[in-house]
Design a protein around this nucleic acid. Structure first.
Lengths: 141, 141
DNA sequence: CTAGGTGCAAAAGGTTTGCGGTTAA
DNA sequence: TTAACCGCAAACCTTTTGCACCTAG
């Protein structure tokens, strides 16, 4: 997705809401995430170095955690692979293609959510559900 | 769960099916997994050392991978936490209690499975779904 | 005898941390 | 000015690997 002014506003608002600064590193890293497809920290770092040649991986990790705490991105994992970061905060699942490694967003509807919730015995207080699909994804065009 | 003769048979069959030996390490480690609740490799190692004081963590990892390949246990993760091993191979989800860290098995019915599958556009070939719940579990008795 | 198995130690991969120096409200 | 921030290096945790020795069919 293309980074647009509303993304910039979202970033500035979220950061200032926590009393944090909108540095050029944070701005650029957020842009990279918006314009990538569920990147890992390493991929963000690699991509960011084009514009910010001296940025360190540690700074990338620091900023990513800041983003998570500000509610700007959501981290997720497949198995114990490197954490991926998703700027789409709406309820959805992920599908990973076994061949390409590509990750696709799969919308989740309310019906499914309530069905899933009903699986739990009454004593369980549910806070979050995560659904991960795996298989062969669509052939790239 | 208590380790019983049918578990022993299951282990021997699965190993010999792949031309592998039922060593005392493998037998004991499988017993530990059966009698633990979704242990991590480290927990298996710790528990196994009571009976096999010299067993190394590397051997534990080797055996666990052997078990996975033989279809004796199934590995799963919460976030990027240490992999846990589950001897229950039936379709089910996991619930992790945020407070105690305890993991509970949650049965999954066919209805849910088919609903989940229907979320995927036709071009996706599904191989596996994983459902992970998180929240506050039942109070321990 | 020999393929399979064990244990040790070292390395790998991903992530976190401590710290001196920098920057911006 | 001063708290927030950056970048480096070192540490950390889980897992994997290479290799010498051992063991059971």
């Amino acid at each position: 997705m293309k980074f647009n002014p509303s993304h910039k506003k979202q970033l500035d608002d979220a950061l200032s809401h926590k009393g944090l600064r909108a540095t050029k590193q944070r701005e650029h890293l957020f842009k990279v995430i918006i314009e990538s497809n569920h990147p890992t920290a390493d991929e963000v770092h690699l991509s960011a170095k084009t514009n910010l040649p001296t940025i360190s991986l540690a700074t990338v990790y620091n900023c990513l955690e800041t983003f998570v705490e500000c509610g700007l991105v959501r981290p997720f994992n497949f198995d114990r692979k490197a954490t991926r970061y998703d700027p789409d905060l709406t309820d959805h699942a992920h599908f990973q293609c076994k061949e390409s490694g590509d990750v696709f967003d799969i919308p989740i509807n309310d019906e499914i959510k309530s069905y899933l919730q009903k699986l739990l015995p009454a004593e369980f207080e549910l806070e979050a559900v995560e659904v991960a699909f795996r298989g062969k994804g669509p052939i790239a065009p």
